[in-house]
Nucleic acid binder design. Structure first.
Lengths: 349, 349
DNA sequence: ACGCAATGATTAAACGATTAATCTACCGAC
DNA sequence: GTCGGTAGATTAATCGTTTAATCATTGCGT
């Protein structure tokens, strides 16, 4: 049993310098009254010894663990890397660590994950809830990232506006018949996006929605979406509600000999990792994860600071929706019989 | 300042039941000597009060924080969701929490991230190093997930064997000229995969390697890889070293009118989220993340248990490479002039 | 010269859980 | 009858940090 105590602690520094622990603590934290020269000496000695304060000791005394939780309930969500990155960055900047809890599985797993975090003493948590789940209030402040229309939402991308931007973009390109491709109508996010698209349609335009999950229940997983047929029916633009669906649409169309964007445009949502890489690169709408994470974390931290840590409180923030940014690439172009408008693709080719 | 102490602690339970804290502690941990009936009563009362042990108190006393670190240095790596999921699952099963530290940026950022974790008192950490970086030994046990050929590697997928499997698969389909598409020749992982492919070639087959990053430095980011030309040169199979490159290859070929898999086959690595979704679905080779994570975590935990927590020790494991699994889908098919071999795609269509 | 304030440091009490050491009955054996 | 053993509980120390309270010294105004 390795009973060797690791590195130096306050009292080692204190005795080594012939002062009291309190003074060392004060010198390092800059809180109490310590003469500048002694403080300097202490800091120097501490650095020299490679002193690392014990979170456990500090947490025990202050009641603050310095850790936040991040609950990502959607299985292997491709947004995860960006989100985790942004959250971790914002949390680090605020002096917090991030404990993850990925609750693949059902709602009970989500609750379990939340409990695990609470047991580990997180001061608050950020939750991206799974489809239309209400977050069962944990016994600590909770920031929710979902949709502006979700009750209890703290902050989220303005999916609705993102949808409108897509619609405007397609309208500018002269498209009239648009097929919206979504996964599941129960997702708040997807509903907002679809609603936004519809709200941005102009006179003479119309849109139909195709829900993939429903289709797959009928025809089997991985089935064809029959998009080439839709092109023949007169659809010229396919607005997917996520880049994953957009990718599926794009490859299916290409596979069936439909030229994108000449014969049909494809757009997505989220600007996932592959979006700039595929050919043609995907026109999409990106969340400002950095801003979202900053707002979520700062509101969360603020709530912790004022209300303390043991209130199952849903965190609110001043700004509950962050603009999405349209990124025009090559997968969207003018509708067939239109004169060439000055598109702003990144690679005019 | 919210000075209200949260939930009940041992002494509250103790006084409430008229026993000592020690007895309560013993009853709940099952360690000391407590009569079964009293233990039962204590457990009941604790549950009733919703007692959650303070990690801080426990950590301070035992010197064990119950937390591991996970360092993911590659920017927005699409493997992250699966890996994080698997690691978190294995760690949870072993009674640990997982603190993430995503060090986007250079090597110094990686070191900083490691230090942050150490300051938070992790007992050990799992690191997926960035390209050919040697992990600067942190002051705690470290498990490295990279490649069997990386010095100090703890456990990883058998990328070499995965490459061989791809080569065999393509050989079975009658392909002779193969273009290997990689990103960066300095990646240990990509080198192993490419080496594996070459080692699996049979008589009469040959392979050339295309490094995308190098090409992009010359022609600009997002440039065409010129794969259609390669097809005309006689290449019938494109073996990408990651699904991201495979996706790029697939869409570029389709865009240029090359039928996949009829005129050319495309394979990838990693079975990323989009691989089953694109058309044609991608033939690829998957890592067994669950097993890798289990081995990494169990070796790490074992090392912590025996060597203690304050040794900058690289963790070793019995099994340092885990087999990859070939997943045949529709993007690979028989080489042009060959008789139809019985392929085993999931959707014969 | 006396009191008051400011400065710079120390003392000591927490925080909550763990655990070695100790104490108290009580039972059986010699 | 005394001694040893033991089950079942308690005592008290400890982990490392923070912080309110205290103490000592010096300077300064009146």
């Amino acid at each position: 049993m390795a009973q060797t105590r690791p590195g130096p602690n306050l009292s080692r520094i204190a005795t080594s310098l012939g002062v009291s622990v309190a003074t060392v603590s004060n010198a390092l934290s800059g809180k109490g009254r310590v003469s500048e020269q002694l403080a300097e000496k202490i800091r120097g000695h501490a650095a020299e010894l490679g002193y690392v304060p014990s979170q456990a000791g500090r947490a025990l005394r202050t009641g603050r663990s310095g850790v936040l939780g991040l609950v990502l309930p959607d299985i292997a969500n491709p947004l995860f890397p960006k989100l985790a990155q942004a959250i971790e960055f914002a949390a680090t900047a605020a002096g917090y660590g991030v404990l993850i809890a990925d609750s693949r599985g059902d709602v009970s797993a989500q609750t379990e994950a939340i409990n695990r975090l609470v047991e580990r003493g997180v001061e608050g948590m950020v939750i991206v809830p799974r489809r239309a789940t209400r977050v069962s209030a944990a016994s600590c402040p909770v920031a929710v990232i979902d949709t502006a229309s979700t009750p209890g939402n703290t902050v989220a991308a303005d999916h609705w506006q993102g949808g409108r931007d897509i619609a405007s973009h397609l309208a500018d390109l002269g498209h009239q018949r648009i097929l919206i491709i979504g996964n599941n109508p129960e997702s708040n996010v997807q509903n907002d996006r679809a609603g936004g698209i519809r709200s941005g349609l102009r006179d003479g335009m119309n849109a139909t929605t195709l829900w993939v999950e429903k289709l797959e229940r009928e025809r089997g997983s991985g089935c064809s979406l029959g998009l080439a047929d839709k092109v023949r029916e007169g659809y010229t633009a396919f607005a997917a509600l996520s880049d994953l669906q957009a990718l599926r649409a794009l490859t299916e169309l290409q596979r069936d000999g439909v030229d994108v964007p000449a014969a049909a445009s494809v757009t997505g949502f989220d600007d996932l990792i592959w979006s700039p890489v595929v050919t043609p690169a995907l026109t999409t709408v990106a969340m400002d994860m950095v801003t979202i994470a900053e707002i979520a974390i700062s509101s969360l931290v603020e709530t912790i600071r004022t209300s303390g840590t043991r209130e199952g409180k849903l965190v609110a923030s001043d700004i509950d929706r962050v603009p999405m940014k349209l990124i025009v690439r090559q997968s969207s172009g003018p509708s067939k019989p239109m004169p060439k408008t000055p598109t702003d693709g990144e690679l005019p080719k």
